[in-house]
Amino acid sequence: MIELEDLKSFVEVVDSSGLNRAAARLGVSKSIVSRRITRLEAELGTRLLTRTTRGISPTEAGSEFKSRCDRILSEIEEARDAVTQQGRSVRGRLRLSAPLSFGVRYLVPVLADLAQLHPDLEIDVSYTDRVVDLIGERLDAAVRIGSLRDSSLVVRRIAPVHAVLVASPDYLARHGRPRTPQDLVGHECLIYTGSLVPEWQFQSGKRRISIRPEGRLRSDSGEAILQWAVAGLGIADAPSFLVSDAVESGALEPLLLNYPRPEYGIHVVRPPGSHVPGKVRVLIDSLVERFGGIPEWDRCLTEFTGR
Rank of each mutant, 00 (worst) to 15 (best):
A251S: 15
L256R: 15
G215W: 03
P260Y: 02
A231T: 02
P260G: 12
A238L: 15
I235P: 00
N258G: 15
L252S: 03
G232M: 04
L256M: 13
A224Y: 09
L255H: 10
R216H: 15
A246E: 13
L256D: 08
L256I: 11
L255Q: 04
R216M: 12
P254T: 11
E214M: 08
A229T: 01
P213N: 08
R212Y: 13
G232S: 09
E253W: 00
P213T: 11
R212H: 15
P260D: 09
L252M: 12
L252R: 08
L217A: 10
L242Y: 00
L257F: 11
V243T: 15
E253A: 14
V243E: 07
L233R: 07
E248V: 01
A236M: 00
P239L: 13
L233E: 13
A251G: 04
V247N: 10
E223P: 01
G222Q: 05
D220P: 11
I225T: 10
V247E: 08
D245H: 11
Y259V: 06
L255I: 09
V247K: 10
V243R: 03
S219P: 12
P260H: 05
E223S: 14
A224P: 04
R216I: 14
A238Q: 15
A236P: 02
G222W: 00
V247D: 04
S249N: 04
P254I: 04
A231M: 12
Q227M: 13
A229C: 10
D245W: 00
F241T: 02
V243P: 06
S249D: 07
L226W: 07
V247R: 07
A224E: 13
E214N: 06
V230D: 03
D245V: 06
I225G: 12
F241M: 02
S221F: 09
E253I: 02
L256Y: 11
L242E: 09
S249Q: 12
G250M: 01
P239A: 04
N258T: 10
A229K: 03
Y259L: 09
V243F: 05
E214K: 08
I225L: 13
E253K: 07
D237M: 07
L256S: 12
A238F: 04
A224Q: 14
E253C: 03
I235H: 00
A251Q: 15
G250H: 06
I235N: 00
E214Y: 12
G234A: 05
G215S: 11
V247M: 09
G232F: 03
S244L: 02
G215E: 10
A236V: 01
A251P: 01
R212W: 11
S240C: 01
A229P: 09
V230M: 09
L252K: 07
A251T: 02
G250A: 07
V247S: 07
S240N: 01
A246D: 02
V243N: 08
S219T: 14
G250F: 01
A246L: 05
G222P: 02
A231E: 05
P254F: 08
L217Q: 11
L217G: 02
R216A: 15
P213M: 10
Y259D: 09
G215T: 08
L256W: 10
F241D: 00
A238D: 12
G232Y: 00
L257I: 13
P254L: 05
R218I: 15
G234N: 06
D220S: 10
P239D: 15
R218W: 07
I225W: 10
A251R: 13
R212A: 13
V243H: 02
W228T: 05
D220F: 06
